[in-house]
């Protein structure tokens, strides 16, 4: 994976809201981050840790007050004359928190076409893209003619995410897209993001405060704490530092706690990397137990242990 090109690089980035005014509030300090093309990156952190600010910097909605932000072929630096950023934003999509509140047109179709039209696509293509994005989010095309405010909460959220996908961005950033979704919709959304990443080679950055929902899918994690990027690395590395997560305001994911319990009871497991899915974990435990000549029933016990955690 190391040969993949870097698409996002933040060097010593600082950001202060309302800099120079009495309400100045520092949001980011000395953030250094690299994201490679085609990876799925989870961004975790407590509230107010700077996750959302980070995404807005990558989209050029905010200019850094210190350091530099390189995204694709653009470099954003403090105090620069704000360049025209549409060529960047066409390639970097950003879905805000509570995206359903940002729908504003009178039909879903118009809302989905808003981005593509702004990026200079002809009407027909924009229309095709809108329908395609809706299908990608597994929504019925009949919704295209509906008023966005008449959709259900979950549909609205998906339509809003579709409105970002409609422009066909290479980098897709989502700010807590799964908050307020039910667990089935959450899982569906994450498998969709995984597909966008694995099959279409898009780079995905997803902010979440539920690490467990993305743990099986993410290639890499960034943990933000009080405006600093305190961690960047793979899931195994994250698992290795599970003890520190609490201090960073991130709840230790269930899978990690479960795996830790198992490794403390079956020391032969501790050399293995943490399995990403429940099936893999059960398999690893079964092999370890069978190998040690113990009795079977590993998977069953594992489930029990997870449930009691």
């Amino acid at each position: 994976m190391s040969e993949r090109e870097t698409v996002i690089e933040l060097k010593n980035v600082d950001y202060t809201y309302q800099a120079g005014s009495p309400f100045a509030a520092a949001a980011l300090h000395d953030v250094n981050i690299r994201v490679r093309r085609g990876t799925l990156v989870g961004i975790a952190g407590g509230t107010g840790s700077g996750k959302s600010t980070l995404l807005q910097l990558v989209n050029g909605l905010l200019l850094p007050t210190g350091g530099s932000v390189s995204v694709l072929d653009h470099v954003l630096t403090p105090g620069m004359k704000k360049p025209r950023l549409n060529s960047l934003r066409r390639r970097v999509g950003l879905s805000f928190q509570f995206p359903e509140q940002h729908l504003f047109e009178d039909t879903v179709e118009k809302d989905l076409m808003f981005g593509p039209l702004n990026f200079g696509m002809p009407r027909e293509e924009a229309q095709n893209r809108a329908a395609e994005a809706l299908r990608a989010m597994r929504l019925d095309e009949a919704l295209l003619k509906r008023h966005p405010l008449t959709l259900s909460g979950g549909q609205m959220r998906k339509a809003a995410i579709a409105s970002v996908l409609a422009a066909g961005p290479e980098i897709v950033m989502l700010d807590e897209p799964t908050a307020t979704l039910d667990s089935a919709a959450r899982r569906e959304l994450i498998s969709l993001l995984e597909r966008l990443c694995r099959e279409e080679g898009r780079t995905i950055l997803m902010v979440t405060h539920r690490v467990e929902e993305l743990l099986h899918a993410a290639d890499e994690w960034i943990v933000m704490h009080e405006g600093r990027a305190v961690f960047q690395g793979g899931p195994d590395e994250l698992a290795g530092r599970a003890g520190e997560l609490g201090g960073w305001g991130v709840a230790v994911p269930e899978q990690l706690r479960c795996w830790r319990e198992w490794t403390s009871r079956l020391p032969q497991l501790s050399s293995l990397p943490m399995p990403r899915t429940a099936e893999e974990m059960a398999g690893a435990i079964e092999r370890a137990v069978r190998g040690a000549g113990g009795s079977g029933g590993g998977p069953e016990r594992e489930e029990n242990l997870c449930a009691t955690n």
Binding site: Q56, N59, L61, K82, R84, L85, N86, R89, R90, G93, L94, F96, P99, Q101, H102, F104, E105, F114, G115, N118, F119, S163, V164, A167
Partner: peptide, 28 residues
Amino acid sequence: TILKAQAARGADYEEMKIKEKARLLMSL
């Protein structure tokens, strides 16, 4: 935030002509 969400989808308020600005504000 709505203005920002629109900017993210390619309609940057600060880059617009006055007529487009008015239309965008109406849509808010």
